[in-house]
Design a protein around this nucleic acid. Structure first.
Lengths: 65, 65
DNA sequence: CTTAAATGTAAAGCAAACGTGACTTTTAGA
DNA sequence: TCTAAAAGTCACGTTTGCTTTACATTTAAG
């Protein structure tokens, strides 16, 4: 599962801690998701979508076809 | 997390087992998600979206604002 | 170069997402 | 009504999302 969180963060000049705080998760969780260590839960994906005002599919990309 | 899986299934005359098989999960998992016992993972939500050719937001609805 | 902020990483633990197996209840057709 | 398929549920086990704490590394500004 790839994602554009790092870019979306950069566009807003946000740190991982800033994003984590806005999402209500830990900084390590944001870091792990950005690094592809694991996928976010669906509720967390929805939070990202609302925060960035984008569709989930515009932020996360499933590796499968 | 509400979802329209039961309706989407009914439109296609699919059983829970049919859907489970198409998604690559167990029948109990489909049942539990339909009954709101827990949320699907993001990868599973993507599989649903691809299967029904809909956006994730058109299938699942976050309870939060 | 120094220093602090930002990022990366790791271990231990908990909760939630799934699996399997078995069983009960509901639905629907003959 | 009888029966079989579908749906619902429970117990138990495994995996993964996420937390906390702690520390190492990178980045950037002075």
């Amino acid at each position: 599962m790839k994602n554009r969180l790092k870019v979306l963060r950069a566009e807003r000049d946000w740190t991982q801690a800033d994003l984590a705080n806005a999402l209500g998760v830990s900084r390590q969780t944001v870091n792990a998701i950005e690094k592809g260590k694991f996928d976010p839960s669906l509720p967390l994906a929805f939070k990202c979508a609302r925060l960035f005002e984008l569709a989930i599919e515009e932020i996360f990309e499933d590796e499968n076809e």
